[in-house]
Write a protein that binds this DNA or RNA. Structure first.
Length: 608
RNA sequence: GGUCCCGUAGCUCAAUGGAUAGAGCAACUGCCUUCUAAGCAGUAGGUUACUGGUUCGACCCCAGUCGGGAUCACCA
């Protein structure tokens, strides 16, 4: 992730292109320079790759490098000081070191995100961002957690760049699954509610979903034992028949069923809210399937009238997408009821109506890749111009070391348990430390949650979202190495230094990058280089819908700071110019660590 | 079977078509009288699944093979 800015364009690239153009040998073939970040094992910050231009010029890279050596010293900053301090050719690469004058200028521009004053013209967009979207029959699990963290981080990233982001979820509150829980509760719940049962609402409802499945499986066994076929038994088990009847009643707005439905969904929402709050995520608007599933139907009717869809003999409505390389897809059942995708069509149009979004992002697992291809194709077929601006943020499944999570085998990792676990572990770690004995129990508990969540969030966000990943509980709970707590720790050390500096009044608040101190340590230079990568990192993360870039940055900056901290005294530095410079670096590093953690939804405690 | 995704150190993950493929964990060595050792420095670990092709240059692009996963419901 190399920073490129207007100064580098004007003072480095344009003169280089002009110089190329003056070279008669290859004036007919204007080479396009390829820039990259210099690898850390070489001297320099920016590297010009010479293979292409050398070939076009008919020269060896070494000869071209030799000629360019006449050119580099002519490059100047606006005030006439040199732009580059060194140029080393290594093989086909030219490694350029930027001058201290450049780094001083870069410092003066600031590093924090500031969408008003960027190099590129910025167009803020209204973006509807969907994530989470659970069913209401069971609690959230590890898969939801990855989903929620991705969505939340994308919200923070896009917002930080100045976009208006509306966080939404669609809640699948309707259908046979919730009826199963309702029925089981009626049969086995003995009138208990979450409070009287002492169970969190979503878990309470989830418990009855499991109870239903148990009773259902028992009945199937029984029927098979009586000589029915498996298929027959699965279809005719009395408890399933009853659940279907309940769904029918719900669709007819039967008052008793609707009341029960409302009551049990309310339990679930209460439970979800606790989980969301603890996880630190939220939403601006919920779309309930029960409220939007009918909207899709009218959209389908419209498509039928326009001849875009067709109705078969049984009365079912289909869309043919073979011209787009997809299959036919059913939109309405023969009994006229809507299917999953019908509801999504309606919800999409509703959201465009509600927000007039420029873009919409659906954070949904990659097992639904095909579903979203079809959805967007249908929206396009219906003639919505915004269909092309809908995007499926497709992420990979989270596996366990022993394979996929399976509810039947009881291996599903529950979101609440997960947070308990990480908090407990962090609390144990705090308890063995003697650094924080002065904190109250409440403060310790809060800190433990912050650290535990940092471990969990960083673990899930550092991976490229598109990739399937393995959740290894032992590694996820690690507080050392390539982890969230590692980054937090760097931030805490910095905070501590800065707190002491201000209490000692050590910082004189002069321009910390004056030429008075110019004997920069390699780790100081590295920090400046890291700072400049912050903005391009966030822009890349936004463009690619990939928060892992932000996690990479945070880790890289924390590492750079740790090295600096090890090599360079700050408060104990006798030279006041050097001390000011280092304190300024510390202040900036602290700010950017906090910002980068912030975009991952991770707290930056000042002590740990 | 059709379509899509994936295969990198023992494990988990990085690497805009560029340099000697990098981190962390696990293993082994050093470093706390020194601004927070949740740290730093070092050792070891690789035929980037395999075979071909394109290219000055391929983990990356193309074709094929093998292996894993997802999806192709009048389920959601």
């Amino acid at each position: 992730m190399m920073e490129w800015n207007s100064l580098l364009t004007q003072r480095l690239e344009q003169p280089l292109l002009a110089w190329f153009a003056e070279q008669a040998e290859w004036a007919n073939a204007q080479p396009r320079p390829v820039w990259q970040e210099t690898r850390p094992e070489f001297e320099g910050e920016i590297t010009l790759v010479l293979f292409g231009p050398a070939k076009q010029a008919g020269l060896s890279p070494a000869v071209l490098a030799e000629r360019l050596n006449q050119f580099w010293p002519t490059l100047r900053m606006e005030d006439g000081s040199p732009l580059l301090s060194q140029a080393h050719a290594v093989g086909g690469f030219l490694n350029l070191s930027l001058s201290q004058a450049y780094w001083r200028w870069r410092w003066s521009q600031g590093y924090s995100l500031n969408h008003q004053g960027g190099d590129v013209e910025f167009h803020p967009e209204t973006i509807v961002l969907e994530y989470s979207s659970p069913n209401t029959n069971k609690p959230l699990h590890l898969g939801h957690v990855r989903n929620n963290l991705l969505g939340d981080s994308m919200y923070r990233i896009l917002s930080s760049l100045g976009h208006r982001v509306i966080r939404v979820q669609v809640i699948n509150d309707r259908g046979i699954h919730i009826c199963k829980s309702m029925l089981a509760w009626q049969k086995f719940g003995q009138g208990q509610d979450p409070r009287s049962a002492g169970v969190k609402g979503d878990h309470w409802v989830g418990h009855f979903y499991v109870e239903f499945e148990r009773a259902y499986q028992d009945q199937i066994q029984e029927l098979v034992g009586q000589g029915r076929s498996r298929e027959e038994a699965e279809n005719q088990a009395p408890i399933l028949v009853e659940a279907r009847q309940m769904l029918q009643l719900w669709e007819q707005s039967d008052p008793a069923v609707v009341e029960l439905w409302k009551k049990m969904n309310a339990w679930v929402y209460e439970g979800f809210e606790v989980t969301y709050q603890r996880l630190g995520i939220g939403f601006d608007r919920n779309y309930f399937e029960s409220e939007t599933y009918l909207l899709g139907k009218s959209l389908v009717e419209r498509g039928l009238q326009q001849g875009l869809f067709r109705r078969d003999e049984s009365g079912a409505v289909w869309v043919d997408l073979q011209d787009r390389g997809l299959d036919s897809k059913i939109l309405l059942r023969s009994d006229g009821t809507s299917v999953y995708i019908t509801q999504d069509l309606g919800t999409a149009e509703q959201r465009q109506h509600d927000w007039g979004f420029d873009r919409m992002i659906y954070t949904v697992a990659n097992e639904q890749d095909y579903h979203f291809k079809v959805l967007f194709a249908i929206l396009d077929k219906l003639g919505f111009p915004w269909a092309a601006r809908c995007y499926h943020l497709s992420y990979g499944m989270v596996d366990l070391p022993q394979g996929r999570m399976k509810s039947r085998e009881g291996t599903v990792v529950d979101a609440d348990d997960l947070m308990d676990e990480v908090q407990t572990l962090a609390a144990a770690k705090l308890a063995e430390s003697d650094k924080l004995t002065h904190l109250s129990d409440d403060q310790k508990s809060t800190l433990a949650l912050q650290i535990g969540l940092a471990a969990l969030k960083f673990y899930l966000l550092k991976v490229d979202p598109t990739k399937r990943m393995v959740y290894n509980p032992v590694e996820a709970l690690d507080l050392q190495g390539h982890t969230g707590p590692f980054v937090q720790y760097a931030h805490a050390r910095l905070s501590s230094v800065l707190a002491k500096a201000s209490s000692e009044n050590a910082h004189k608040a002069t321009n910390p990058l004056t030429p008075a101190y110019e004997n920069w340590h390699a780790t100081e230079r590295l920090l400046l280089r890291q700072f400049s990568q912050w903005k391009p990192t966030v822009e890349a993360a936004a463009k690619e819908n990939n928060p892992s870039h932000v996690a990479d940055f945070a880790y890289g900056l924390a590492t750079a700071f740790n090295r600096f901290y090890h090599e360079c005294p700050v408060l104990q530095e006798p030279d006041p110019e050097a001390r000011d410079f280092r304190l300024a670096l510390c202040r900036q590093a602290c700010t950017l660590l906090k910002e980068s953690l912030g975009l991952l939804g991770i707290a930056a405690p000042e002590r740990m």
